[in-house]
């Protein structure tokens, strides 16, 4: 179990839990990011923050601080795992 903010670019994970009380997480849930959803960290912005993640056929940007509460299961059975070396 890893916070989404610690994923490496290119790494996949399955969303394990989020905090539905927070406004950010409510927005993400409306976009379809619900527990069990497979997501991929595409990249970090050039200044390190925010992050771009892909899920359900869309690319969404969110801030590092907002990604800390999203817990991801990296070991889960995800399609491909090709983490790029940092």
């Amino acid at each position: 179990m890893t916070p989404l903010s610690q994923l490496l670019p290119g790494q996949f994970g399955k969303l394990a839990s989020l905090n539905p009380e927070r406004g950010v997480d409510q927005r993400l849930m409306a976009l379809g990011l619900l527990p069990g959803m497979v997501l991929k960290l595409i990249r970090r912005a050039p200044l390190g923050d925010p992050l771009a993640i892909e899920f359900g056929g869309q690319v969404v940007s969110l801030r590092l601080a907002e990604a800390e509460n999203l817990i991801v299961d990296v070991a889960a059975d995800c399609p491909i795992q090709r983490p790029r070396q940092p």
Binding site: R22, G23, V24, R27, L28, L31, P50, A52, Q58, V59, V60, S61, L62, R63, A65, E66
Partner: peptide, 10 residues
Amino acid sequence: AKPQPFVLEL
């Protein structure tokens, strides 16, 4: 303002 969520579709 609480730090507003900046969830942005690319």
